[in-house]
Nucleic acid binder design. Structure first.
Lengths: 137, 137
DNA sequence: TTATAAAATTATAATTATTCCAATTATGGA
DNA sequence: TCCATAATTGGAATAATTATAATTTTATAA
């Protein structure tokens, strides 16, 4: 809690009750949640919370560089509190989005083909390790 | 035209007039069009064309592996007739989506971290070469 | 404290992308 | 040509997101 407030302040985001709670959830549940998942989870604790607040908040978080927005699925945006460089796999079977820590030859500070790179997103689709192991039963 | 029909047949898609025209446009204008761009362009030639047809058609193309669906922007899907492995850059200044041909250490047939990989998408965001050159004026 | 201005939250309406569905039209083969 | 099937169409339905205006909360200064 105190920790979350410090993080918000570090990123120049005024800590409010809902902002703290939203970031806490993103921190606790690292499952690349979308707005509805955050809303369903938070509604239990804050029944009056509005989806508009969640949209405003995650947009602010992304703008300030505190969380990353993932567009691996075309349906909706997902949010990732882990901003260290890594990629993602969408499992076509279980639907989970899983962190993939592979060596990536590119970094945000480099130029590629003459273009200046500021963000890198690597998305894989396939079958995750766990689903593969069930397949062989 | 004949060529386009052959491609459709090769991918087991019954060639219809609108399907041919949609693929022709994706072939001619390699600018990673979205559904609205295709619709605006095609309406000139086929005033009765429906957006539902375009959605049906591009979805079929993607399903059959004839074109790739890009989700680099969260707003809408974009379609790429070039299915050879390459990545994309979204220029934050001009908004263009540009092909990036860089060496990628991963291929669709490999396993990563124990996961089976079937699709790979690499998205970069930054400033494209051309916008950079204008910047220095 | 209290007053007040600014910021955050909320509910709702509006927008936009996409899918669904039922009716119509086009197509390929007997 | 006729018929069965597939494709197209328009419009309604759904879902994600943004915009807006009113209300509530917060920060700060008197």
């Amino acid at each position: 809690m105190e920790n979350i407030i410090k993080i918000l302040q570090k990123y120049n985001i005024q800590p409010s009750y809902q902002r703290i709670k939203i970031l806490e959830i993103l921190d606790k549940k690292r499952e690349h949640m979308n707005v509805n998942m955050i809303y369903d989870e938070l509604s239990k604790e804050i029944p009056t919370i509005s989806k508009a607040t969640i949209y405003n908040t995650v947009n602010a978080f992304v703008e300030k560089g505190l969380v990353n927005c993932l567009t691996i699925t075309p349906e909706e945006a997902r949010y990732d509190f882990d901003i260290t460089p890594h990629h993602h796999l969408l499992c076509k079977k279980c639907g989970k989005i899983i962190d993939v820590h592979v060596k990536c030859p590119y970094t945000e500070s480099m130029e590629i083909d003459g273009h200046r790179i500021e963000e890198i997103r690597g998305y894989f689709k396939g079958i995750c390790k766990e689903c593969l192991s069930h397949e062989t039963l």
